[in-house]
Structures are given as C-alpha cells and as structure tokens.
Nucleic acid binder design. Structure first.
Lengths: 326, 326
DNA sequence: AACGTTGACGTCAACGTTGACGTAACGCTC
DNA sequence: GAGCGTTACGTCAACGTTGACGTCAACGTT
C-alpha cells in the first residue's frame, strides 16, 4: 500500500532482524523460526515490499526471463506462438520478453543484443530470413537459444522445426485423392516457401508444376491468384503459401465466377483462427503454433538448467485440416 | 565475439584506465580525450563488451523499459496496438515488455507487480474488465500508468479513450442514411459493449432497439446472429460488437439466403486487417490501434520525465470505414 | 609569479540483493 | 558435564554500474 519503494533494509529495520534473515524468509530458504517468519511476513505486507529482481539477478546470474524474438506481432503466425511460449514459460516461473525483427537480420542482431543486456536466461527465436547462421554464432557465444522453423538446421543450434514439406505433401496428396490434377502452388518469395514448394513438387510429381509467387499477404495473394487464373485457366486446385493468400484466392475465384470447391479447390497453410470462418471454410495445414511454442520453452528450459551446452533438433508434425474448400 | 561475459573492469584492465573512464566513454559523457576514447572503444569491440542494464538500472533508477499489459495476444485488437506502442517506444529509446491478463483483475495485479519488480519506468494498460479503480490504486502508489480505453475514466489516472460511442453513433447514422430502419445490435457481454450500445441507442432513437448478446468471438457471433434472425426476421442491418462477430454474421446471413448488403447490411468494429478481405469487404469502425499505442507512449513518456504526478485524459477519434457490406 | 580555470582522469561508496561463512545458544548423548 | 550437532540467526563481500567528489597537470590571466 505504502509508497512503493521499500527494501529488505526497511523490512529488517521494522522487524529488528538482519536483512539476511528477511531475505531468507522472502525466498523460503529456511533457517528462521516460525515466529520470526510470521513477523517478517507481516512487515512485508505492511510495507508493500516487493523484491527488486534487478538486484537479485545481478548476483544470482539468473533473471528467470526469456526472450521471444519474431518477425512481427501482426504476422498471423506469431501471436499464437507467443501465447504458447508465454503460457509454458509462466508455468515454469519464467517471464517472457517479446521483440520484433521485421524479418531483418540487422534488426534481429540489435534486439538480441538488447535482450542479452537485460540478462535474459535464453532466447526463443524465429530466425529472420530463416537463416540459421547468425543464430549459430549466438549459440557459439554461449547464449541459450532455440530456433523455431529455421530454413535449415545446424547441429550446433537447438531447433524445433515443423514438418512443412510433409504438410505440403499431405495437402497435395489430399487434393490428388479428390481427383485434382491441375494443382497450382501460390507461393511467396519468403524462404519458408521453398519447403512448401518441395512438398508440392514431390507429391504432384506426374503433373505439370504450376507455380506463381507473390508477397505473403492478402494483397499479394490476390495478385498471385489472378496470375494463376490468367496463365492456367484450367487450374482445378490452388495450394497457397498461407491462409492469408488462400483467403485472397477465394475472393479472386469468386470474382472470376469459379465456384469453390466445385471448380477449384483451395488449400491454405497455418490454420489461423479465421480460416474456419471463411466463405467456404478453408482446408489448411495446421502447424499448432501453441504447441510449437510450448516445446520451444521445454527445450530452452532444459538448456538453461544444463551447465554444458546441449543442442537438439526436434521436428514437429504438420496436420491437414480438411474443411469445405477442398 | 569472445565469451560473452565481459565487464567494465575487463575493458578498463585491457586499456589501462579506470572503470569510471570506460563508463564515461560508454555513455558518451565526455571528460576523456579522443585518444583514450578510441582505445576504449577498440577494447570494447575486441571484448564484445555489452553494458549490464540490470546493474545500470539498479543505480540510476531508470530501466528505460515500459510494460504493456493487455488481455490476450490473440485478441485481434492487441497486436496492432502492441506494434504501435513498441514502435513509438523504440524511437524514444524505450524497450517494451508485454504481458497478458486474460482479462482477469487478479491476473492483472500479478503481472503488474511482476513488471514493477523488474523496475519498469511505467506501464500502459488495457484494463481488465475495463475497470479503472484497480489502476487508480496503482497510480496513487506512485506508478506511472496510462490506461487505454477504460470503461470509465478517473481524473487520477492518465487515460486515452477511443470515442467508441461516437463511432457507434456514426455507424448507425450511416446505416440510417442508407435507409435502414430495422438495425440490430449484435453485442457482447464485455464491458466495452455498453459504449457501443449507447451509441446505437442514441442514433437509432426512433427505431425499436433490437439487441442480442453473445461472446465476442466468431463462434459467439454465429450464435448471436442466428438469434437475431430468429427473433427479428425482418431485420435489415446488423451492427456488430467487433469484426469477428460481424464476420460470423456474414456467414450466418449467407447460410440463411440473405444477401449482403442488399437484404441486410453489416457493420463491424475494430477494422482488423482481414475485414477488408471478407466476402463483401466489411464496413467497420476504425479505432486506429497503432496511433492509440503511439499516443499512449507519448503520455507515458511525459509522465516519466515529469517529477510531479501528472494525469491527463485524452480522447481519440473513431472513424467509419465504408466498404461493400453496407 | 601567483592564481584560478579547465580537462582528464581516478577513488570511493552506493544501488538491493544473495553466497559464504561465522557464532551463540540450545539440546542431546554417554 | 564435556563434546557435538543443530538451529537461528548475523556479518561481510560481491554482483556491475554510476554519482559525488578528489587530484593533478596544463594553461591562461594579470
């Protein structure tokens, strides 16, 4: 209640013990009588004492804080991942600091340095540009770090990777099982696109590959989908880089008078919250961002608690969610 | 590059000066020769020295960090606000810490205490339950705090409030100007709903009020929209609590064979990124979250830099964005 | 030549906390 | 009743940094 600045000294003075004893009570270390404990706790309440985590971390070298670094908060992929991380971290007593890189490697370097200055115990990182190398350097420098879905892996860096190629393969197999043979890939220029394209090419091996690229946004999707319709008018399915682009494809197809899924089937990627509520609800590949985040925290927490450097590469399944658009 | 832990002492030892001099160089305080400055900077680079912000904050009482507390990251309102805050904070050298309350007052108390333990310089807060009182207590306790869109304001608390009632009024006026007279309000049980409802009732005064309530989610929207259709089959417009519910209404209307906007117009609230890309692009009320965040940072930064306690109540306009759904 | 001023450092303590270690009092054992 | 272990404390230094202040040499002024 009272003016917010009180310290161990204030509590100690009020009770008439040493600060060390108050510290013991605060941390439940034991080594104090129940009577003393009660008096100290009472004083803590009266003074509204709150431990200064900066001072504590300065000496313990543990801040009980981790960093989560991603491209952008408005990237639909990120918030769910962030919630998964945040939730898992909370349950093991870790606080999460978020930072955004705008997918720039330079900016990533800056925010990581800033987090290290704040003495975070470790960092979960969605690599800018998908690049593993800048992260390997961090790991070599002794930072506990876990990469989520890097474009390539490194034995020196803990990572957790969604089976993106597998997910794409499953999506294409699904479309083919429904008789689609002229399947287009509405890709993007992002490094994450190549894995989807790989799955697409593997699973659609016999068919002619129809590939267009655009920005991984709704606007980009409209341009790309239009390009597909123009170049391959007889297309009977579109597999999009993400749900945003798939959503745009839905609109373009409607405007072109093609019915979904009768004329053209559409499959997205990411299973963002809205995809279930689109015009025809969208078939999509679910990466389960929340669980991805949870796993990343587990990996990181293990690394933090282990004195030696450890690194593990984990893969995480991608699951096809079939809805009315295919 | 080298093993990450080097301190002022290490740099000082290497150059052969005192830590105080290195500190002066690091902070650009002046009081050192250009030659010494160059040698210190070289040593800093060689050793990969990074100042320990915890130690610095411990003594300066400034952490250059602010907290941003909101309901949930996946709440579509939050990420854009967060980006606005983050961006504005960065440009004035402030780092942002995010925390989520799940709209629970207890949880809000916890996360705020946790942020204070980390010695944040101030907190921007989206009040759980819209309640101003718990925040007034914090302000009285000497915490720099800015509330965003509290359900009510207090002269003791800096706040920035969107003109939600005005936005709702404008939306309804727009619908009436298009000849709609049986306008339903698809509200929610959240405290923020009452302001929208107030605007709705004011602007639609002559008409019979048609109000349904449901959870402020896409699923809730489907239930609420269905209820509206069942109870008032001749409804000619739906004004929804948020874009998620409006999106759901769009689907329910389509399923019921009502065309939008010919049979029923739909207006949402929030202007989330996707609303421009819905089946008929959605008319909605834009709160400009990004700017809201920016303003909040300005207010907070001013409070931080002012020794005396100041509090200001600012209102922020809501703007109707007219698209094809109305 | 004496004096004040300025620049370029250095010294010391403090921020709030915890690790390492010390110690006095008490109870128990044989 | 001497010896020993345990309990419940206290003391001191350290974490990495900066604020306050001191020192010393060089310089300009009169």
């Amino acid at each position: 209640m009272s003016r917010s600045e009180s310290t161990l000294h204030d509590v100690a003075a009020r009770v008439g013990v040493s600060t060390r004893t108050v510290s013991r009570v605060v941390n439940g270390e034991g080594g104090f009588s129940t009577a003393t404990g009660a008096r100290v706790k009472a004083a803590i309440d009266e003074l509204g004492y709150r431990p200064n985590l900066l001072a504590r971390s300065l000496i313990t070298k543990r801040s009980m804080t981790i960093g989560l670094v991603g491209g952008s908060m408005t990237d639909p992929f990120f918030p769910e991942l962030a919630e998964g991380v945040h939730e898992a971290a909370s349950t093991v007593g870790l606080t999460t600091l978020f930072a955004a890189t705008d997918d720039s490697v330079d900016r990533q370097h800056q925010v990581v340095e800033s987090l290290r200055s704040r003495a975070v115990d470790g960092i979960i990182l969605f690599p800018a540009g998908g690049l593993i190398e800048p992260i390997r350097i961090l790991a070599d420098d002794g930072l506990n770090v876990v990469a989520i879905n890097p474009a390539e892996t490194s034995v020196a860096v803990s990572s957790i990777s969604s089976d993106i190629t597998g997910g794409a393969r499953t999506a294409i197999a699904h479309l083919r099982s429904r008789g689609r043979r002229r399947i287009a890939f509405l890709g993007s220029d992002s490094p994450y696109s190549t894995r989807r394209e790989a799955g697409y090419r593997e699973a659609a091996a016999d068919d002619e590959p129809l590939v267009a690229k655009a920005n991984p946004t709704a606007d980009g999707g409209m341009i790309g989908a239009q390009e597909i319709l123009d170049r391959w008018p007889r297309v009977d399915a579109i597999f999009a880089y993400n749900d945003l682009m798939a959503m745009a494809a839905l609109r373009v197809l409607e405007a072109a008078g093609r019915s979904v899924p009768d004329d053209v089937a559409v499959v997205g990627f990411d299973n963002i919250g809205l995809s279930a509520h689109l015009k025809p609800p969208l078939t999509t590949v679910d990466l389960d961002q929340r669980n991805l985040g949870r796993l990343a925290v587990e990996l990181l927490a293990e690394a933090i608690d282990t004195p030696e450097r450890i690194s593990r590469q984990v893969t995480h399944p991608a699951r096809l969610v079939i809805r009315a658009s295919s």
